[in-house]
Every structure is written in C-alpha cells, then in structure tokens.
C-alpha cells in the first residue's frame, strides 16, 4: 500500500467537511433557540439545486450561493410557520420538510442534471500558499471554506459574548421565563430557524457548485442528517461542531484514499465507516452527558404563550 500524503488529505477533508459544517452551525443556532428542525437534509438539497440553477444561469458561483441562502431560509420558514405559528410537532414537521425538500429539489432539478456549472476558483493567498505543508493543506482553498471557519468564530462570539446571544440561549433554555421577561420568543425562534435554513442552503450549494460540482438527484446523500449528529457531537458549541464536522469529513476522505491506495478492506465496510464512527461517537458523547446536561433545556418543546 502506498503512502497517503497528509497535506493532501487535510486539504481534501476541509473541502469535504465544509457543507456539513455550514449546515451544522446553522442547526446549532436553531437548537440553541430551543427548536429541533430535522429538515436539514431537505433544506440542503433545495439549496443545492437552487444554488446550482442560479449559478449556472448567472454564470457566477456567488449568485448561486445567494439564491441557495434565500431558498434554504424560505423553506425553513415553512417549518417556522408550522411549528411556531401553528404549534405543530417539531419532529414530524422536520421530517416532512426533508421529504418535501427532496421531492421539490428533484422536481426543480429536472433538466439541470449533468450540466457544468461555473465553478469557484481558489483564493490567492500569495506567499501563504507556498508554505511547506501548510500551504498545500490549508491555504489553497476557495473563499467559502474560510467563510465557514469565520462563521465558527462569529457564532462563538455571538452566543457567548453578546447580549443577543444570551437572549437566544435563554429562549432555548426556558421559553416561558424568557417570555415573562418580555422577549418575543416566537420571533426569536423564527429568526433562528431562518438562519439555520440559510446555512443549510449554503452548505447544499457548496456541494453542487464547488464540491461535485454538478446537480444530481439526492446528491446530499444524508449530509443533513450527519449535520444533525454533529450538533449533538459538538455539544452545541461552535468550536466542537467544527471538530466534529472535520472528523466526519476526514473519515469520509480517508476511506476513499485507503481504497485508492489499495487497502485490502471490504469496500462496504469502508463506505459504512463514517456512519459507524458517528454512531460510536454519539454513544461516547451521550455517556458523558449522563453526568451533566448540555442540550438546551427546552429543545424540541413547543411554546405557546397562553393568554
């Protein structure tokens, strides 16, 4: 078996992880506000298709990302209206969103399969890109990769260093008292849901515009569900969500490299490995959590201010 170049592996895992990272960061904010939206997969795939169509039509990747953000947010707001306005069950509504999103995306994507999108060039980071090892591993990516890393920092500051973040967290911890204190619980939750949808849409568009880069049916292939798992893995903290996303992306990339390098392991086992590792990690995390709660206390509980 030939060696695997670690610099290339890191470079590949950063690209592979970006869609999941974006979606997971969005969902983390939603869950911090006390809402469980299981529709991430649906919002991602709608983002992927609308992003691709817009990017292709405009001949510009950024038009695609913009469209995907809007489409993801719009879809999320259906969920928002149903769960916040009409107090529907969040789990069921989230599942419905995924099923609807997959169908809608496949419908919108008719006639767009197999086309060649505009692509997104890499950032020119000058001398940084020529650094030994690090240059090849981390300084030769496109802007979205760095934006996703920036989002980790921004969200960390927002959640734990800003007043608005504090309010958002208090809504997730105890919606009734936040309401009693005069905070508009529903509006805050709707805003968080919209943000989550925008992130998921952007993540999906990264798949169809940069990573693959084309549109095909079902192309998210469970990435949205992985994002949900990573939020749990990341204990609702941006930094740990980053670790989780890169870990999952790393395993996905590693197993392909192992196959290409001629490892004598069953292919089915290799391609199931990212999911098996996710389960294992979830188990380890939940064992730890038994000793102290980390999830937002009101996560998934419907809130209806009774007059």
């Amino acid at each position: 078996m030939n060696g695997i170049d670690p610099a290339l592996l890191i470079a590949a895992l950063m690209v592979a992880s970006t869609p999941i990272l974006l979606a997971a960061l969005g969902e983390m904010v939603v869950e911090r506000a006390g809402v469980l939206n299981l529709g991430v997969e649906g919002m991602m795939i709608v983002g992927a298709v609308s992003g691709f169509i817009a990017a292709y039509g405009a001949g510009n990747a950024w038009a695609g990302f913009g469209a995907a953000i809007l489409a993801g947010a719009a879809l999320a707001l259906i969920f928002g209206v149903l769960t916040q306005g009409l107090v529907s069950n969040q789990v069921a509504t989230g599942l419905a969103l995924t099923l609807f999103g997959l169908g809608l995306a496949s419908l919108l994507g008719q006639g767009w399969v197999g086309l060649k999108g505009p692509g997104l060039g890499r950032m020119d980071l000058g001398p940084l890109a020529d650094l030994p090892f690090l240059g090849r591993a981390v300084f030769r990516h496109d802007l979205v990769v760095y934006l996703s890393l920036g989002l980790v920092i921004v969200l960390n500051l927002f959640l734990f260093r800003s007043r608005a973040g504090l309010v958002l967290r208090s809504v997730g911890e105890n919606a009734a008292s936040a309401h009693a204190l005069g905070y508009p619980v529903r509006a805050i939750r709707l805003a968080a849901i919209g943000f989550g949808g925008a992130c998921a849409g952007l993540g999906g568009a990264y798949l169809s515009i940069v990573r693959v880069p084309q549109w095909s049916d079902g192309m998210t292939a469970g990435a949205g569900w992985i994002a949900l798992a990573i939020v749990v893995f990341g204990a609702w903290r941006p930094g740990r969500v980053l670790v989780g996303a890169y870990l999952f992306g790393g395993i996905s990339v590693l197993q392909l490299n192992l196959q290409a390098a001629g490892a004598e392991l069953p292919i089915e086992l290799l391609s199931a490995s990212p999911y098996l590792v996710t389960i294992l990690v979830l188990v380890l995390i939940s064992r730890r959590r038994h000793r102290g709660g980390e999830a937002p206390a009101d996560l998934g509980r419907p809130f209806h201010a009774s007059a």
Partner: peptide, 21 residues
C-alpha cells in the same frame, strides 16, 4: 468500486482520491 452507475458525488470523490494518490 463505487457501487453505483450514476452518483456524481461519489464519482467525484473517487476521482479526487485517485488524483491525490
């Protein structure tokens, strides 16, 4: 082996891993 006739994501991943190798 990608176990699919048509899956752009998997095919692209496989191609990239090969190129990296």
């Amino acid at each position: 082996w990608v176990y699919t006739w048509f899956d752009p994501s998997k095919e692209a991943d496989a191609a990239r891993a090969m190129i990296d190798q």
